[in-house]
Design a protein around this nucleic acid. Structure first.
Lengths: 215, 215
DNA sequence: TAGATTGTTAATCGATTAACAATC
DNA sequence: TAGATTGTTAATCGATTAACAATC
């Protein structure tokens, strides 16, 4: 069977949530789960979960449900977690350094290759990750291709740096700047707009607590 | 006129984007804009923009379009930017400190009151913001009510700390931990799940560049 | 006035939910 | 076998797009 004909972005954005919940269930030692139990957990309908998974194949068993380990594995596969993706960090300021130190890139299937900045830390390493000068970006990427560039540079550097990353062949930009990057057909941009998120929260708390609004 | 009967979360999440684009237009000195020009800019249809705004009132003028300044002002009002919201930061580790130092809370209408941690920086100030011990959280919030708590504590502290914030009367939690917080009817949770975002990007670059997938 | 563009209703499209036969 | 639960199609619901009269 399998489908895969044009999976909507709404479905795709639920996949990491499934993955996260299944990881948690696995951690708790749960072996099998039904679509209705998982839906209960996650605030989704059983129907939606089955419909979502139906986009990619058949992962369950009638009368039994889903095996937690193998469903997690399958979803990880769909997300591309074992594709050997690589990543470089642009900007080792407060935010860049915090991500370098805190974020477990490997858990999402990314190998962190290096960080780049214009002063400060250049020449040192942060938790074992070398920090180079931005001037060396193209040279480095030439010999160490990166799937994704994490953009955490100051506002004014955002657009030119995004262009350099794209020209150097990255497939995606993980954008932590508050700048809307110009669209390019050859690069996917995933935005993390803190202020959009906080303003949404501002709206929601300013209203009279309309439950179920989130996610 | 005006509607406001049950605005969908999809519309709400577009409001901060409108606000951001209008701010940029304002910065560039643009005085008026039509729904079609704004749609062009943002990759939305003119129809959708007019439909979105229609949820909240009439902000334009037939034959003219929208005044950039006043539309921005109105959307800011809808988002609750001038409601005098306040915020405390829980966890002054790498990420918490990076946000304390970098993020312009005031631009989203929030006054940053204080940060809390268990060691390290306690007793000091970070860019003028006092860092207290977590033990003093309830006492502090009693005299300085906060609209929102920014949660940037370690995994294991996330759920109990969220509960303390909720019990102390915050209206929203801005959750930067990778933990799914239990739902409560009296608190809105807005999640910033870095790993979900990166995994979505991983999926998208793993496919054959299906343009227009983002946002 | 004529042209432009909104506010607003109607039509279309897509996503979610319901239903149920297949089957473990 | 009987009970449970999936895979999958059909029905419903909601969001986006189209259309156009109102009006600046």
């Amino acid at each position: 069977m399998k489908r895969q004909t044009k999976v909507s972005i709404a479905v795709i954005r639920r996949l990491p949530r499934y993955y996260r919940h299944l990881t948690e269930l696995q951690r708790r030692g749960v072996v099998r789960i039904s679509s209705s139990a998982l839906g209960e957990d996650m605030g989704l309908t059983a129907s939606q979960i089955r419909q979502d998974l139906f986009c990619f194949g058949e992962f369950g068993q009638q009368g039994y449900g889903y095996n937690v380990d193998s469903l997690r594995e399958e979803i990880g596969e769909i997300l591309g977690i074992s594709r050997g993706h690589t990543l470089v960090v642009l900007g080792a300021g407060n935010l860049g350094r915090a991500l370098l130190k805190n974020f477990k890139f490997a858990n999402s299937g990314f190998e962190l290759l290096a960080a780049f900045d214009v002063n400060d830390e250049v020449g040192t390493t942060v938790d074992g990750v070398p920090v180079y000068h931005t001037d060396q970006l193209e040279e480095f990427l030439d010999s160490h291709p990166a799937s994704v560039g994490l953009l955490a540079v100051p506002r004014c550097a955002a657009v030119p740096m995004a262009e350099r990353l794209a020209n150097a062949g990255v497939r995606g930009i993980w954008n932590f700047t508050n700048v809307e990057l110009p669209a390019r057909p050859d690069v996917i941009v995933e935005n993390v707009h803190f202020s959009d998120s906080l303003m949404t929260l501002s709206y929601l708390i300013s209203q009279g607590v309309p439950q179920e609004a989130e996610e």
